[in-house]
């Protein structure tokens, strides 16, 4: 199983906000035991999907020059459990972005119902600050392509995001 907790981006506005979707499926292995006969997606993994949405938004905003690491879940609240068949829609916005870190707010909705909300704090680490290299460039680019970032991505003036030539 790979650690992908979003399936694709539907909106991506550089440095501002992004919307990603996650289709919850009974085929996911962790569902089988959580719980037998009453499968639900753990909210810890919903947070992971939120963090991938917001983390890629932040990493793009700083040109992938630092390692963007989820440092802190500053607040999180959930209103109901996501179950197989649900499509979670994560909307992330950047509240504050500085060289050393960023603050984001992410909501999770199923259709028009608010499933959860979180404030996520990311540290932006330089090589040598205790975090190993997270991605090889081609591996990262493959993921970004799979996420359709360069299909839906726009800068703040509305121009398409250029695909990097790593």
């Amino acid at each position: 199983m790979r650690w992908f907790w979003i399936d694709r981006f539907d909106e991506f506005v550089r440095g501002r906000h992004a919307v990603a979707v996650k289709n919850v499926s009974l085929a996911e292995e962790h569902m089988h035991d959580h719980f037998p006969g009453a499968a639900l997606m753990p909210n810890s993994l919903v947070v992971e999907g939120m963090a991938q949405t917001a983390g890629l938004l932040v990493a793009d905003a700083i040109d992938y020059n630092r390692r963007v690491v989820l440092a802190k879940v500053a607040a999180a609240e959930f209103h109901f459990d996501a179950v197989p068949g649900d499509t979670l829609r994560f909307r992330a916005e950047i509240l504050d972005l500085k060289p050393g870190g960023s603050f984001t707010r992410v909501s999770s909705t199923v259709e028009d119902r608010l499933q959860g909300e979180a404030e996520l704090f990311f540290a932006h680490l330089e090589p040598g600050e205790g975090v190993p290299k997270l991605f090889e460039p081609e591996e990262l680019l493959r993921w970004l392509d799979q996420m359709h970032i360069y299909d839906v991505g726009r800068d703040q003036a509305g121009n398409p995001l250029p695909r990097p030539d790593w």
Binding site: A71, K72, D96
Partner: peptide, 13 residues
């Protein structure tokens, strides 16, 4: 240590 970064953000704001 990570909280100090968070605190810096909040005090700045």
């Amino acid at each position: 240590s990570i909280d100090f970064l968070d605190i810096v953000f909040r005090l700045e704001k």
